[in-house]
Amino acid sequence: MELSILVFLAGGLFLGWALGANDAANVFGTAVGTRMIDFVTAATVCSIFVILGAVISGAGTTETLGKLGTITALPGAFSAAVSAAITVYIMTHWGLPVSTSQAIVGAIVGWNLFSGSTTDMGTLATIVSTWLFCPLLAGLLAAGLLPIISWTLRKTKPHLLRLDQATRWALLLAGAFGAYSLGANNIANVMGVFVPTSPFGTIQWGTFLTLNSVQLLFLLGGVAIAVGVFTYSRRVMMTVGNDLFQLSPVAAWVVVIAHSVVLFVFASKGLSSLLAGANLPQLPLVPVSSSQAVVGAILGIGLLKGGAGIRWRVLGGIGIGWVTTPVCAGLVCLVILFVLKNVFGQTVYL
């Protein structure tokens, strides 16, 4: 493999690292921040399940991003990934709510503009409406699930120590499910733009394990996310965990489950075909924001409890982020594409 290919892929790997560093906290923040599960256990489980989710179920959301724009040259894909990563970095630095999903969509649209390709407005509308639907669905799920759990616990009256033990296991399992869903839903953000120009072939280990070029790409992206989890997510987990824990351990579990279900339903091809088979409306397979799903779930619980203490400014910030993030990523992508093409003489589209 040429060195240049690795350099170009590094753009996506950097984005994967940033995603692992930030979004693992949405899944394991509560458990680690409150020291219910030690960081190494959480990071290990998180990494394994992120990689599994990416390799096994990552194709669905990638197809949707592909419909938005198929980046035909590796340097172009690099520009999109790097501009998304830079946008995420800058907006995080300024303390603005940001999502890799929104950044990569903006970057792809930027590439479309630069290369003169058409942006499928139908797909764009589906993606944007899903961003709105994601926190809403997470909020509804959390607000629906919490009373059920609460009623069950009131009826069964488990001993506090047993409930505590069960909560720890439940958080670990919910975290594993959340990590799988995160990998399945968000790998498209990290590696999706490289799929049309994947430099890998198919690899077969033994009789059963075969990984095609896309799965290899996702494996690499999953590993980058895992590196982000191990190297940088601890601090974020401590912050998120302490914020979330105000909810009580069981409510925190509900938040993780609601978040994970939302990411899963927007990523699962299997569920999508199941719904299609039953003549039910299918949910679009779209990369959504893990952080916004968590915020939606917390808001759902907050509203269920009467709405006191909800910080409406946070909601406003998310709404603004839906516009500023893709616009910023699109602009950065245009600049990088211009520099790569005109200064470094790279082919950024075919």
Binding site: T34, M36, L160, L161, D164, Q165, T167, R168, F245, P249
Partner: peptide, 12 residues
């Protein structure tokens, strides 16, 4: 030893 939820552990 069992590292009960620290917040709960302190209260108990």
């Amino acid at each position: 030893r069992r590292t009960l939820i620290p917040d709960l552990r302190g209260d108990v």
